[in-house]
Amino acid sequence: MSVEINVTGEVVTAYLSGEIDHHTAKAIRENIDSAVDLNMPTLLVLDFKDVSFMDSSGIGLVMGRYRNLAKSGAELHITGASEQIHKMLKLAGIEKLAKIEGR
């Protein structure tokens, strides 16, 4: 599992890859949060294009980032979700919290 962070202006994009589960979620969370704390973006994009597996730990990750961003009025977008990840996002009602792009 790895996270690559890209900062463009007020947008932080986190490119996630590999498997997201309870074991890997902590490191991903810490990576994203430190980039957000440092750059104070108005938009955080989570890119799931290279995520090969995600269980509900990924939903916890998305909800947690949403809650943190909401404190400063920043937005959360999700992109690159596979059919399976989209199924999970839909089950959790994430479309009410974040814009899901590319669907």
Partner: peptide, 15 residues
Amino acid sequence: GGERAGLGFAVMQSF
């Protein structure tokens, strides 16, 4: 609490 979504059983039931 923390960052657990509380969806474990819901996912098992759904999938």
